[in-house]
Design a protein around this nucleic acid. Structure first.
Length: 480
RNA sequence: GUCCCUAUCGUCUAGCGGUUAGGACGUCGGCCUUUCAAGCCGAUAACACGGGUUCGAUCCCCGUUGGGGACACCA
């Protein structure tokens, strides 16, 4: 059996967006499953818009997702000579011809044709003129053989295509001598021995013309599979302006690569009822036959769920590894891993969907000074809480060990000393004093990871604040 | 405008002539509970419409409607 060869061919005109990432993923999964060769080719023939930065972003994005390639990256721009060569040979063999129609003429005739009920295809005026290279500025068009069916059996869409008579002779080379995309991809795919072209469904309609180019060149037509586009949550085409589409952005928000991979894989593809897929399982089960035929909306809520799922799956060390850069940002320094950090991340993982969120929730244990939410302070840091807080400070101060269990005993002692105070009555003020918010992990763990010194300092701050505020408001000071 | 593609819960989807139309996310409710989560339990919710074909259509065919894509000397 001959092994398959596939490629991912992004144009480096921006960041790698999720549609492209998914196309890469499908190619990769298909190829890995079949034990074939996956090639990366950068389509940078549009020199105006292509940049090395975005090329680097594409490679980085793929690497981050764990999508590795076997050959390349090749650059289409480096193959210009070869593209010229193919056009020349087509010209020599009569598979293509020179066309001197100007844009204006073309546009006028096209408009007239449509007005007359036609399709607006190129009318073939120069087709049989046998124009030589001495005719001034000209483009080169493919001489599409009439009465040919330009059809193929798409691995996703099934039987597809059109009759040759339904499309016009397309341009292969511009008047400035540069090749058009259609010619370049076909030539590159032929030269690189691509057997399976898996790409976005936006190319579905271009395929007949490309098949005609394969025929003219005399090369075997590869197998095609067109993957439906990802659409935005509003149901429309993804807009770079409106929608979150950059893989880099998802990464910066704190998504784990395994979650992104799983999410992308399930967007338009399924394997029975299974929702959770490791990279290995995607490879094991992937097949084009189970890729849907209609566009899929990017479901951010599902991504959030998946991301938390993988957050919960990670080992302490790999969780820290992923979270580390985010923790550094919040703390403003390099956070080193220790037992307290591990514990902190561990209690935070089931409370966060992204790493930015996780790091933000870890703030109370990472920085010296916290801001207390005014609303939380007003509600929970009241004179009524003073006695409990002071009893707790005393109990905490006399603790010999600082851990969740000993802290719990201190709470029990404080509650009892404060007149059989309910735990909830004490826990919330403490939570606000220590974390600045009303929501946090269990109160014992929270105090444990915040550290004794910080906890005691913040509790004292809180009691001071309550007193000062009571005085300022002129109300009766709390009983001592 | 022409051509092509597409259509199952709000979303991602399973289904490939006969099913109580399944799962997951979300949403809602309950349990748990020191807050928030997590977890567990339960509920809600779909075959776009109209014709055929067939003993029987979610499934096959044809329309309609909706959605998407392509029609460049862009990629």
């Amino acid at each position: 059996m001959s092994s398959i060869r596939t490629r991912f061919a992004p144009s480096p005109t921006g960041f790698l967006h999720i549609g492209g990432a998914r196309t890469a993923l499908f190619n990769w999964a298909l190829t890995r499953k079949a034990g074939g060769t996956f090639i990366l080719r950068i389509e940078d023939t549009d020199l105006e818009r292509s940049t090395r930065e975005s090329e680097a972003a594409v490679l980085e994005g793929l690497e981050w997702l764990g999508i590795g390639w076997d050959e390349g990256p090749y650059r289409q721009s480096e193959r210009a000579e070869r593209h010229r060569e193919v056009v020349e040979s087509l010209l020599n063999r009569g598979g293509a011809y020179r066309c001197v129609c100007t844009r204006e003429e073309l546009e006028a005739r096209r408009t007239a044709d449509i007005a007359a009920g036609g399709k607006g295809n190129y009318d073939g005026r120069c087709r049989d003129e046998a124009l030589g290279p001495d005719r001034g500025p000209h483009t080169v068009r493919l001489r599409i053989e009439r009465d040919h069916a330009l059809r193929w059996d798409d691995l996703v869409f099934g039987p597809s295509g059109q009759e040759a008579s339904e499309i016009g002779d397309g341009i292969l080379r511009r008047s400035d001598g540069s090749p058009l995309y259609h010619l370049a991809v076909v030539v590159d795919d032929i030269d690189m021995g691509i057997t399976h072209v898996v790409r976005g469904a936006d190319h579905h309609s271009n395929t007949p013309f490309q098949i005609a180019i394969y025929r003219a060149i005399g090369a075997p037509v590869p197998t095609f599979a067109h993957v439906p586009l990802i659409v935005s949550e509003s149901g429309r085409k993804l807009s770079k302006r409106r929608d979150p589409v950059s893989l880099q952005q998802f990464r910066a928000d704190g998504h784990l690569p395994e979650a992104m991979l799983n999410w992308l894989a399930r967007l338009g593809w399924s394997h029975g009822d299974q929702e959770i897929f490791s990279a290995a399982e995607i490879i094991e089960h992937f097949d084009l036959g189970h890729v849907g035929r209609s566009g899929a909306q990017a479901d951010l809520a599902k991504l959030a769920w998946l991301n938390q799922h993988y957050l919960k799956q990670r080992s302490a060390s790999s969780l820290f590894e992923a979270a580390s850069p985010f923790l550094d940002v919040v703390s403003g320094r390099k956070v080193v891993r220790d037992e307290a950090i591990d514990k902190l991340l561990d209690v935070l993982r089931e409370r966060s969907t992204q790493l930015v969120e996780m790091a933000e929730k870890a703030r109370f244990a990472l920085v010296e000074h916290i801001e207390i939410e005014p609303e939380a302070a007003n509600k929970h840091l009241r004179p009524a809480a003073l006695d409990g807080l002071e009893q707790l400070i005393a109990a905490l101060t006399s603790l010999s060990d600082w851990n969740a269990a000993s802290i719990e005993s201190a709470f029990e002692k404080a509650c009892k000393a404060a007149g059989d105070l309910k735990l909830g009555k004490l826990a919330q003020p403490v939570r606000v004093a220590v974390t600045g918010t009303t929501a946090s992990p269990g109160i014992y763990e929270t105090l444990e990871v915040a550290g004794r010194d910080r906890v005691l300092a913040r509790l004292r701050n809180a009691t001071d604040w309550i007193r000062a505020r009571a005085d300022a408001a002129g109300s009766t000071p709390p009983p001592s």
